[in-house]
Amino acid sequence: MATAASAPPPALTFPRPIFAAVSPHPFLQAHLSASKTAVRANGRAAHEFRAPGVNTGSLTHCNGSAVVRLGNTSVVCGVRAEILKEEDTPGTSSPAAVNANGDVEGDEDAGAEDEVETLRLLVPNVELSTGSTPAHIPGNAPSTFAQSLITRIRSLLHSTRLLRARDLRITYTPTTNPEDPEAAPETESKGYWVLYLDVFFISIDGNAFDATWLSILAALKNTRLPHAYFDEECEGILCSDDPSEARTLQLRGLPVSSSFAVFEGRGEGDGETGGEWVLSDPDAFEEGVCRETVTVTVDRGVIRRVEKSGGGVVGRETMKALVKRATERWAVVEGAVSGRP
């Protein structure tokens, strides 16, 4: 460690940015252990999140979009909808009967499998732009980091069952029943909306996952799909030009993720350990010196996902406190996403 500890008097001193660059770990430890309240190098308390800034509907050529800022992390998400025709699907997963509203029996049942996952109606993608982070080298294939991020987003979208298959289904009820003119005609499914969720990072200053998820939530809440219907004469799906017929998506709840990084202090001598701090919403500098990360996703007090890896500091007791922190964060994010200050 290149600290000034062993230098002869007059002691060698560094200005703040150089200390941070030369020895990041002791720099953060010095900050955290300086006072009892544990103020981080970026001026936040250990349990303090950055205030989210959400701006929706900024992209013209998308069905829904959002720009989200968490401190210096800024991300754009655009939702683009395309039509998947019924004849282009394998046909194995289509429901046997759809009622007039496009509902399938047991649609609200938590365990029922739906087409959103089997037909891959949600396609998330994360792109790190040139200059968004020093670690990103432009022109290469998506990094492990980006791929891992996409996998986590996709599995969270599916495990929380955020979108209802009903919203994405395009149904058609013929005027007469072709088999039996007396009976009521059966509603059939003619196609699906496929949503491409493109997330674009303008800059990453830590906590990319929370920013991505927040931008996707905000963009989906902003999404308006035009009214699509099956036209008997054209024998194809047409979209209505009237904006008043467009409808928004009905999301299932609002799962909000909160990420934490665990900073382990180093002791003076061998075998001696320094303190441990769990930092909410870490920035890029803190992510660089922390090994263990925890992400808790909650929806109104119900836990939807816990991801923890990289070390053994967070046990059952600490996790309880983190779930509490995540629940408090939920209210803040819920306010930001629904446009309340």
Binding site: I303, R304, R305, V306, E307, M319
Partner: peptide, 30 residues
């Protein structure tokens, strides 16, 4: 249907090294 799935990994000194939980659950269940 399965409501929630959890993967835990422990070290020899009983520290929780990894946890991946998915589904719908409360802290008590976890």
């Amino acid at each position: 249907p399965i409501r929630s799935t959890h993967v835990f990994a422990f070290s020899g000194d009983r520290r929780l090294l990894l946890n991946e939980s998915d589904g719908k659950f409360s802290y008590e269940e976890w």
